[in-house]
Design a protein around this nucleic acid. Structure first.
Lengths: 127, 127
DNA sequence: TATCTGTTATATTATATGTATAACAGATAT
DNA sequence: ATATCTGTTATACATATAATATAACAGATA
């Protein structure tokens, strides 16, 4: 099963960030399971037409954040032990990210139910 | 009533973005009401110890997004007509922002209720 | 031996961020 | 009227980030 990567080169979102997010989405959807192998930096870079270092940057950050492991021998694999569960540190960062998003939504007249329902519908994509 | 601005110069979040967000928070909390005046670019820059152009960039974007109006005469004021209500365009952007956030939360074992409750508690700060 | 890994190093280009001055034009207050 | 304050624009500079382009090294494998 090949994970399909869709990049928007015109986006203000950096390519390596888009790549990271799509791999995380793949894990969240169960398309990528613990222990599954990922393409090498060179082959993935060639496949999607970007530079080796851009893929490497995404991989290094995914490794740093506990999503994947990188072995000299086995290559790149989704963390066999699963991703580290949400701790206080992660919750703090999530809070800090959501806070200004919700502030703007309040300004634009969205009420709590409306916002929660939007989140709820997004959660449905991962089940 | 002076809106207190708290900048983290070490943050990876640009200064003008932090400034924007804190003004939006001020509006969401009702500290800044429609028609209220904001400091001039020069005085605010001097107050918080940053460059005139950094404040100007934040103001220009806030104007572009409908939060404030800038008159040659009256100076800078919170949009007297209120901020433009959430439309399909805004909902689409919000969706696109929340999607990867929720994907990561799913990876980290947060269930829907947990996430929604976190959002709910953040909404409570604006009421 | 040749090939494929991840990794590291350098260099270059382009863009984003933030600061520093300076000037212009309109409005306002003394 | 003179001075001051407004937003706005222009130019320049320094720094950091993003992305690419080569190249090389060391370990594993066919």
């Amino acid at each position: 099963m090949t994970l399909l990567i869709n990049l928007d080169l015109e986006s203000d979102e950096p390519i390596y960030t888009q790549l990271k997010q799509q791999i995380i989405v793949g894990i969240a959807k169960g398309l990528l399971k613990p222990g599954d192998g990922l393409p090498s930096v060179r082959s993935l870079a060639a496949d999607i037409g970007i530079n080796l270092h851009t893929v490497n940057k995404a991989y290094q950050q995914l490794k740093q954040e506990g999503f994947i492991l990188i072995h000299r021998q086995k290559g790149v694999v989704v963390n066999p032990d699963g991703v580290q569960k949400a701790d206080e540190d992660y919750r703090g960062k999530l809070n800090k990210t959501l806070y200004p998003l919700i502030a703007e939504s309040v300004c634009r007249g969205m009420n709590e139910d409306e916002f929660l329902q939007l989140c709820s519908s997004l959660f449905k994509e991962f089940s």
